[in-house]
Write a protein that binds this DNA or RNA. Structure first.
Lengths: 156, 156
DNA sequence: CCATTTTCTTAATCTACATTAATGTGTAGG
DNA sequence: CCTACACATTAATGTAGATTAAGAAAATGG
């Protein structure tokens, strides 16, 4: 168990790394993301205080995700094998979140996904730039911006 | 532990059910899916022999997914609490599959998702109708059909 | 503070995929 | 062996969201 101070923008893990770790966020905010073949970033998750951020690659496989800090943070770095002993219920809850995310990506429009996001993660909305929320939702910043202004119009 | 024979098209679980179970597929093929507000089906996963099919709602929450049989099947029904003791490594592997699915949904075109699917699940491709694969990929059967014919053209 | 960079918005145009509809093909069950 | 029904294909038209571009606003650091 290894407590680390992380500066904003510092990269903790790169796609392709072996022996990737898991990070428990004590304070601050991490994110995990990929970069596709066109160089575009896609945010997989945000990790505020209390969350665990990790790629679920097992120790010997190359991981899929980058992890970096969106704010100065304090994190506890743990080995995957230790993490395996971590609260089973939390892992099942995590799976359910992923399940809902997949369903939402397949069935909901951009605007609906945005509504869902702000009601589910109201604190994060205020801490990260819009274009990162767009990236999490799977749309462009421009599309999010126009979705938001349409939303304002439609509500009285 | 409860072994059940399931007929093709038989529904094992409906969205909203409490106390949903997990199903280990001994033979045959299950699927889990949602139906959105427009009545459209979205397949969450296919479960051939050896797979576990379940909604990850904990026992007391209403589940999100329907589960039914695409072929006559033999399944073992287990309680969620028992399932919790099941192979931890399998659950982590499952998370990684979900992680990749999310990344793919966010970053890949319909045709790329199709390519990825047939290389990852070659056996399933032959067992289910095209329109269900389209549903799994998050596109319409028409889009899949035309993606396929373009693919043929482009490969010499 | 000011200057520079980062982020957000708006608008025009473009494209992948959805929708609709018609026609074709296979196949299961009576 | 038919008759249906389930599934696939094709084509025309529509649309959500992508792309591009430019300017405004906000944040950041020196």
């Amino acid at each position: 168990m290894n407590k680390i101070n992380v500066k904003k923008k510092q990269v903790l893990q790169r796609k392709g790394n072996l022996n990737s770790k898991a990070y428990i966020v004590e304070s601050g905010l991490l994110r995990s993301y990929t970069i596709d073949k066109n160089g575009k970033e896609h945010i997989f998750m945000f990790g505020p205080e209390g969350w665990i951020v990790t790629d679920y690659a097992s120790g010997d496989e190359p991981c899929d995700l980058y992890i970096d800090a969106l704010e100065d943070s304090v994190v506890i770095q743990i080995e995957k094998n230790d993490e395996i002993e971590i609260d089973h219920k939390k892992i099942l809850k995590r799976i359910r979140v992923l399940q809902k995310r997949i369903i939402t990506l397949m069935s909901a429009s951009a605007i609906d996904r945005y509504e869902h996001f702000i009601s589910t993660y109201p604190t994060i909305v205020q801490r990260v730039p819009q274009y990162m929320i767009a990236s999490y939702l799977g749309i462009t910043p421009e599309a999010l911006s126009s979705a938001k202004s349409q939303r304002l119009k439609s509500r009285k």
